[in-house]
């Protein structure tokens, strides 16, 4: 099977959705990323990425949970699909392989 390709931001978003479990939608994902990574992200960027991930089949979504702040509009809740989980695992294993391949002195130099 062709290996999944994930951009850096896509990876972050996908992971965040997985972290948030049941409650992942535009606002929570954005705020979570902002809190965790400390970088300011635009709503639209997150939306675009979520949508792209859904198109790639890593996320599925359903509409529900209208609130007062939203003026009675529903949210689009995202959940990670099997393909998404596999993609995350793939990325993680590649990273680990790479980390493992680091020579010990280099690892030391980096303070790891």
């Amino acid at each position: 099977m062709k290996r999944a390709f994930l951009g850096e931001f896509e990876e972050v978003v996908l992971l965040t959705v997985a972290v948030l479990d049941e409650s992942a939608y535009g606002v929570t994902v954005t705020q979570e990323i902002e809190q965790k990574t400390g970088r300011a992200v635009g709503f639209s960027t997150v939306h675009t990425t979520l949508q792209r991930l859904e198109e790639k089949g890593y996320l599925s979504s359903k509409m529900s949970g209208a609130t007062a702040e939203r003026g009675g509009r529903r949210k689009r809740f995202f959940s990670v699909t099997a393909a998404g989980r596999k993609a995350l695992v793939d990325v993680k294993s590649i990273r680990e392989q790479l980390w493992d391949a680091l020579p010990p002195q280099t690892l030391q130099l980096m303070g790891g």
Binding site: V27, H47, E69, R70, R74
Partner: peptide, 29 residues
Amino acid sequence: EEVQGDLHEEFAWQVKRLGYRRARWQYWR
């Protein structure tokens, strides 16, 4: 629906955090 909903929710939160005026600017952005 989702986009506007998210924006409004964020707006409500930002009003609390930054105040009305700055939240409005944020909203425009």
